[in-house]
Amino acid sequence: MIVAEQKALDEIRQLVGDAKQVLVVGCGTCVTVCFAGGAKEAGVLGSLLRMAAQMDGQPAAVTEVTVQRQCEWEYLDAIRGPVEKADVVLSIGCGIGVQALAERYPDAVVVPGLNTKFMGMPAEHGEWVERCAACGNCLLGLTGGICPIARCSKQLLNGPCGGSSQGKCEVGCGDSAPDCAWQLIYQKLAAQDRLHLIMEITPAKDWRSSRDGGPRKVVRADLKLPQPDIKE
C-alpha cells in the first residue's frame, strides 16, 4: 500500500487560502487503511477547516466527499458536480490521487493535504514501514524476500556495510534505528541454508528500469481497448 501522512493544518490552510468553497476529497483505498485520508479523516479535516475559517471571521463552505479510489478515472467522474462548484479541491489522496484529480478536472485548483511517504505496510498498530522502492526489476528472489533497495540505507546489493551492528542499521540510533536489511537477509538465508545466493556477486544494477530511466509506463497490448476508427 501507499503510506501517507497528513500535512500540518497550518500548511493545509495556507494551500487552501481564502477560498469560499472548499471540497475535501478523501480516498477509500491505501490512505484509508493508513488513517491519513479516508472518509473519517476527510470529515475531521473538513470540521477543522470550518472552525478555523469561522474563527478568522471568513466563513467558508467546506464539504467532503470520499471516492473509492482517487487514482481511477471512473471514480473521479462520479464527483464532477462538487468538484466544479469548488474554488479549491483539497485532495487527501496520495500524490497519485492529487494528480489524477488535477488531470481529470483541468480547470480545478487541486492542492494536496497529505505528504505521500512510501510504499509499505503496517508493521504493527500505528507503525508503517517502507518495503519497496519500485526499482522495476525485482531482486527479492536473491535476497530471501527482503528488499536491499528499499530497506538498506545505502541500497547495497552485496552484503552489509561496516556499520551494521547488533541487527541495526548505522543510520538512526537506538531503538529508533531501522533494522539492517542485510542482517535480515543473512539470517533468513542462513536459516534456509541458501547463503550461496549472496555469495555470488550481484553486478551493478541497471537503473533504467527505475526512476532513473525517466517516468515509467507499463503497456499491455493485450489489454488495450480497440481504438475507434476515426475518419475525418
Binding site: Q155, L157, N158, P203, A204, K205, W207
Partner: peptide
C-alpha cells in the same frame, strides 16, 4: 549509491 563498494572494485 548507484553502485556498492564491491561493484566499484569490479
Amino acid at each position: 549509491h548507484d553502485m556498492d563498494s564491491l561493484q566499484l572494485v569490479q
